[in-house]
């Protein structure tokens, strides 16, 4: 009995450490994986469900108003959104990672962002994508698979288009 307890406990502990370690080493969801589904409720109160956008390319950007490195790419992302807007099959979604609403809205206004943005409630979306920090951008293809993971900001508008264009026919 004592032995079972000892080895059972030790085994559990080691198992747990292994799983924890694998998780901590795993990093962001990677290219080719199925993009975890989520519901984003925008600041305007509208709901966006990822699974409803099968057949479209989704650009999922994580940012925060307190994040200085997010700022340079904000305008480029908006420009990319405007660029594809008429096509209708490239969706831009912004997830505001642990932020305060007034500052977040101020940020969106400052950079003229018009595509849907919403808070990452209970940090569930960022945890599902195993985000390591902001900014990070995930590009999801028409089949709902991760096509590109951008850690850190995009350097330019071309940088963004370069990642999206190959996915469109």
């Amino acid at each position: 009995m004592k032995k079972i307890l000892l080895w059972g406990g030790l085994g559990l502990l080691l198992l747990f450490l292994t799983i924890g370690l694998i998780r901590s080493q795993k990093g962001q969801v990677s290219v080719g994986e199925i993009a975890p589904d989520f519901e984003l409720i925008s600041f305007a109160g509208e709901s966006y469900q990822l699974s409803e956008y099968r057949g479209s390319v989704v650009v999922l950007n994580f940012w925060a108003s307190w994040c200085d490195t997010c700022k340079p790419e904000a305008k480029d992302l908006e420009a990319a959104y405007q660029y594809y807007r008429s096509r209708g099959d490239v969706i831009f979604l912004g997830v505001d990672y642990v932020d305060t609403e007034p500052e977040a809205l101020g940020y969106l206004e400052e950079f003229g962002v018009t595509y849907p943005n919403g808070p990452d409630l209970r940090t569930e979306i960022s945890q599902a994508y195993r985000v390591g920090g902001v900014p990070e951008t995930f590009i999801i293809d028409q089949d709902g698979l991760i096509a590109h993971v951008q850690i850190g900001p995009f350097r330019s508008l071309e940088d963004i288009l370069l990642r999206i264009d190959p996915l469109l026919d």
Partner: peptide, 8 residues
């Protein structure tokens, strides 16, 4: 090992 490391 990074098991306890921060989000950042």
């Amino acid at each position: 090992s990074g098991l306890l490391s921060s989000v950042h």
